[in-house]
Amino acid sequence: MTYTAAKPPLPETPEQLRARIPGWGVDLDPADRPSSPKLDFRDDLTGAHWEFPDRQPEKYPRERSMEHKFLTPVFGTASPPRGVSGALRTLSYRKFSEADVAHWLILMAADRVDSMGSSFTSVLRGKPDNPITETGILGEFKARPIRDRFGRGRADTKHQWMDPLIVTTPWVLRAGVVYLVAKGLRARRD
């Protein structure tokens, strides 16, 4: 009982558990658990045959966190920054550390600019976005959209329909506001 020193009784004994559940207790001993202790020095370096990895050639000015001493020797080269979103991203890495929330907010803004801008340029490039196929909504026909969603105690169906809107709409609105302000400023200057 909790209000005394004894642990509340369990419904099954170890013997019953062992009989019911394949493998019950095989890793009871912490020595058999691979991540204990947390920090465990490994001399083999799991196959690394260097003290410090060779440096990957930097083919364009690679953005990096200012909390790093230098560009890491290995890095990804997918989708280098480009256009307005790229300028925002570069700015965010150059001006703000990871500890500064502005860093992340600018990156999130750049993501929305990127996806809106890309929808636009995809038309120019002759590979327009197709909202029907890209959202995978046709997959609904393979499922039972009503039965799978309702009358079975799910908590997410109340908001599922509006999630894409919540994620994208405020940015559309904010972009609109920025546009109007810029236009107003220019009108005043002219």
Partner: peptide, 18 residues
């Protein structure tokens, strides 16, 4: 990595140290 924290490598992600 030398201490087994392979999910926290310092040499492969320039974009963030965290």
């Amino acid at each position: 990595c030398a201490r087994g924290l392979y999910g926290n490598c310092h040499n492969t992600n320039p974009n963030a140290t965290a």
